[in-house]
Design a protein around this nucleic acid. Structure first.
Lengths: 228, 228
DNA sequence: CGGCCAGCGTGACAAAGTCACCGACAGGGG
DNA sequence: CCCCTGTCGGTGACTTTGTCACGCTGGCCG
């Protein structure tokens, strides 16, 4: 139950489906939903677990990833503010076990919805339906993209692309990340990332320091990521 | 529009959501839906295309796969009788482009639903909602499984698993498939499949002939797939 | 100061993908 | 019958990627 008018305003701003919904839907939404705060590093879902709630993220990001038996990882996608985790949604609606892991990357502020409410609103609220299906579709596309990258693209290109994206996101040419973290991102292993980075450093495209990578020539890197 | 009583009976048998739906829903369904027959080998969807209809398969199977620029493929999942293609569904509901390819493996008999009907029934018919969400969830799980296999499992084990599944499906120890087809199934390349098969043949686990693989010692193969 | 440990480098090897090329086989037409 | 052609499979040489074992280093903390 959300009663604070400020919080209600915040939810309305963050979620278009809520603005688009009827007054009854909004009333019901505020009544049924619960606010939660999760610390950074908090595990949200374990593979094989049943999902008990659908979280809608207001602030912060969570990372959803696969884990191999040898300890290797791949990031599947991230849940940002205004979004929700489709995997959770579909597991919850079909009572299948969650086939991956999720963890909070930063402190996460969210509201959680009971499965029963998720179901009911699917029947009663068109914007809510659109919202969920939109999420599902975009996630599917993302996951397919990951699979495509893993199978059909060279690691150096993928690494460069990721570094460029990261630089753009933080608006800085210095990316704070250990080789281990980059490996987990791309589904590779630390040693390989080390080697590739070293190669790129020898070509003068970037500089490697403990815990960070500095991009030197972003245009050359972009070119390298495309054709090579 | 489906008017033939036999066909209607057949649809009712194939789709539980239809049996579970109200009389009005059934009437509307039979009225809105159209029967199609696609020959084996018919391409159903191209990457980047917009989906115009949601197909519900009555008979036959379709294969959904990713295609890399160098020509390599991976099978993502198959659509069997009684099922439908979630990718199509979600693309259609969210107007995103289809991120993969789909092709009929055998002759396929299906009914197609207009996007408008898909949407309307989501609002009006609970069993239809359950059906679609169930499909989405199971596909998601499958695709995640493929990604997991590609990243974290050895090719020989994956190949063996696939051959064993195939043998079980056709209830025969002889699998009809070229190395090329096996490679496309697993997201590998022909040469590698050839080499792996040769290795297994040298261990006396199977026999390779032109266009087919004969499994000799299924228990040993099963053991090999597990621990190795 | 010394120990500890996360982060990184490296060499040797194994697994997988790529490229080029060849031979073997099947089926059809002359 | 033979030859032609296209599909299928085998092979060697090489590259890329993953794995394993080990060792170095810089920073933190007792």
């Amino acid at each position: 139950m959300i009663s604070d008018p400020d919080q209600r305003r915040r939810l309305l701003e963050s979620f278009a489906f809520l603005r688009a919904g009827s007054a009854e839907f909004q009333r019901e939404f505020f009544e049924q939903v619960m606010r939660v705060r999760l610390p950074a590093g908090q595990a949200v879902c374990q593979a094989g677990a049943q999902c008990a709630h659908l979280p809608l993220v207001l602030d912060g990001t969570a990372r959803v990833y696969q884990l191999g038996e040898n300890g290797r990882e791949v990031t599947l996608y991230r849940v940002h503010s205004g979004e929700s985790c489709v995997l959770t949604a579909s597991c919850l609606l079909s009572a299948s076990p969650f086939p991956a892991f999720a963890v909070c990357e930063s402190e996460v502020e969210a509201v959680v919805v009971q499965p029963a409410s998720v179901r009911r609103w699917l029947g009663s609220c068109e914007p809510w339906r659109e919202y969920l299906f939109g999420l599902i579709a975009s996630r599917l596309v993302e996951v397919f993209g990951v699979l495509d990258a893993v199978l059909f693209q060279r690691l150096d290109q993928r690494l460069i692309e990721h570094l460029l994206r990261q630089a753009e996101r933080t608006d800085s040419s210095e990316i704070q990340a250990t080789h281990q973290i980059l490996a987990a991102e791309l589904g590779s292993s630390r040693e390989v990332i080390s080697r590739v980075l070293k190669g790129l450093e020898e070509q003068g495209l970037l500089r490697v320091r403990r815990g960070q990578v500095e991009l030197l020539d972003q245009t050359a890197l972009r070119r390298r990521a495309r054709d090579d």
